[in-house]
Design a binder for these strands. Structure first.
Lengths: 135, 135
DNA sequence: ATGGAAGTTAAAGTTAACTTTAAGTCAAGG
DNA sequence: CCTTGACTTAAAGTTAACTTTAACTTCCAT
């Protein structure tokens, strides 16, 4: 698979693929006449990168994760700590997403004249109140 | 409330508050001797902005939402369309987050020698496969 | 064998969301 | 009164994650 096809199948531009390679997230593939040729499973790796990226992982974290996996990191390693921390964050973000969804649904339904009144009626204030300690 | 207190309570720096004001997301408060003084409910608004921001809304979208709310937009308006679209996206992101969580939990538990094998065993491939059409 | 699409590089440009800086003003305690 | 910390502005700097550009090469269909 050439870079254009890989990028296209992942919904990216070739430049993004080269960028990942430069960051060390994607292994440099072998080349034919100077051009990159990717094995089939490269697509999975790219999709996984994008998946994690969409979940709020930075590319630096993703690199850590993929590196850790490749090396089959031992228990208690940096990788495992990162994973545990991330699971907590993902949990938090699921809760937040649910609250946001119900807030949006209410806002679509309700006739509240202002956001403040709506938030009061929903008693979302407590939710917002402890947003101060950000994740 | 002066800007430092507002920022502090929201877990932000004063510069972020001024930035929101410059973007038109935060109403310019009245001033005392040239300094901004905020009413109590400004905190809720800032927290809501951060909440939405954490959920992946851009500040431009947040401005639209808050503007739409303030004007009590009629049915079918731009605001409602945006809200409906966003609910869909939030739904998607909840599903993704759950998948990511189970992927992470599995990776912590399993003894898979590589990511590819792990993904195969979990039959996560179908999940990754339709990641091509990104939200 | 040839013309256009797609590949290559390094380096510079882009965007969002802020932060920092510089140079100054205001407020409050001692 | 004086100092110190918090405030003001406009403008420049930062970071992540890419994209674009320029100058060139390679692949492939006709």
């Amino acid at each position: 698979m050439k870079i254009g096809e890989l990028a296209g199948r992942a919904g990216l531009k070739p430049s993004a693929i080269r960028y990942y390679e430069k960051l060390g997230i994607l292994h440099p593939p072998h080349r034919v006449g100077g051009q990159r040729r990717y094995p089939g499973d490269a697509l999975n790796r790219v999709l996984l990168i994008r998946f994690a990226g969409d979940m709020g992982f930075t590319l630096a974290e993703i690199k850590l994760f993929l590196g850790g996996l490749r090396d089959n990191a031992p228990v208690g390693s940096r990788w495992r700590k990162l994973a545990v921390r991330k699971i907590g964050q993902v949990d938090q973000s699921i809760k937040r997403a649910r609250r946001l969804k119900s807030l949006l649904e209410h806002l679509l339904r309700c006739q509240c004249p202002s956001l403040q009144i709506c938030v009061q009626r929903l008693s979302l204030s407590p939710i917002l109140k402890n947003m101060g300690e950000r994740i």
